[in-house]
Design a protein around this nucleic acid. Structure first.
Lengths: 208, 208
DNA sequence: TGTATCCGATACATGGATGTATCGGTCAGC
DNA sequence: GCTGACCGATACATCCATGTATCGGATACA
């Protein structure tokens, strides 16, 4: 009995994974609304029967896809945080951490942006997005605070606000990069500039 | 004959305007792909006959909508640039100029972001987006250079790159604001921080 | 080998969107 | 008032996506 259950579950999980892989690519290519369930299934080598055997609706598939990708991203981010010990230039190191933590591939940018739009219209899809943003924000804030402490500098701007700004900048650059790939080059200098301003208060202005 | 032509054109233009208004709201509510031609028409008080009398396809409608809105935006931006004379604090003034030039309403954010995604998949739709970005970039660069000249400061970062960064930041903040409206508050301080860093080179670092 | 279970494929019914073709109303000019 | 042109509505044919219900095959265990 247990063996049977085990085998069943494994089979289902494998096909779900393949369906999610197919969904990622299909949604990136055609967009979520424009892609049909059949498009996803045929790309994964299935027919629609397989889909309706594991999902109830296309929205549910989207949510499952987003959840899986988010879990992967958070795992990578967490792993990047652990190794943050002594670095030569803490600011530069923190920037590089951020940049390598963010996912930059076109496929994910397309799908994640579309999910943000989707969430703006469907409140039940928004809770996933909010949860992820909160997690990412907490991690980024921790990274910034740790880096500042290691460098022995005081931040002019609260780390939380800085984290939000960095995330927003990254989203904007990703969106821009979709059409003009060279735009990707502005992210690193922009982050450096931002952090320099955050750790080094301008001498002539108000010394808050 | 000429009178007839004139009357015809005016009539058509009015219904096209109403269709574009309806399309803006419908696309914002449901998304471009999810919205049907009939949805747009019924919101504008028409049937599909009116639509197919002026447009060939939904993509064409989208392009027309984007073109119209872009023209309006550029007109506003250009108007904002003209009045840039003496200001007390040039940096703050420039930031306020930028912020008031950008369109922040949720409707437009939804539609513009969706157009960016649309453009990433349809090259012929991308040319419109690229043209607009180039125009906006030129205006922003001009604004920055003028403000820097008026303030008598030298920029550490090329104005063009700064303009691109500002635009990206704005896009990211807008996207973030869709789900968590309080995120809108980070844009102004972020811009200020960015510009402070750009005009005041950190004293201890390389004095490029 | 027989059997029960699960999973994915196939078939079918339904609804909705698209595009076209045609009709009717409205308005300017004679 | 009559005419011609234009514009938007209506009707129709077609296609495609969805969801369900059923069928067939594969597998593990007795």
């Amino acid at each position: 009995m247990y063996r049977i259950q085990c085998r069943i579950v494994r089979r289902r999980e494998v096909t779900v994974e393949r369906l999610l892989d197919a969904a990622l690519e299909t949604f990136a290519e055609q967009g979520f609304a424009a892609a049909s369930v059949e498009d996803v299934c045929s790309r994964g080598g299935f027919t629609r029967g397989a889909f309706y055997s594991s999902f109830r609706t296309k929205d549910e598939l989207f949510a499952a896809l987003f959840t899986r990708e988010l879990a992967r991203e958070m795992a990578r981010v967490e792993e990047l945080l652990t190794g943050l010990a002594e670095e030569a230039d803490p600011v530069t190191a923190a920037v590089d951490r951020c940049l390598s933590a963010f996912r930059t591939d076109r496929t994910w940018t397309l799908v994640a942006t579309e999910y943000a739009l989707h969430a703006a219209r469907h409140p039940d899809a928004a809770v996933l997005l909010e949860r992820h943003r909160a997690e990412l924000h907490a991690q980024l804030t921790g990274l910034i605070e740790r880096a500042a402490a290691d460098a022995g500098v005081r931040l002019v701007v609260p780390a939380g606000r800085l984290a939000r700004t960095i995330a927003a900048l990254h989203d904007g650059v990703s969106l821009l990069t979709l059409s003009s790939p060279c735009a990707h080059d502005i992210e690193r200098p922009a982050l450096l500039l931002l952090l320099q301003a955050a750790v080094a208060p301008p001498p002539s202005e108000s010394e808050n």
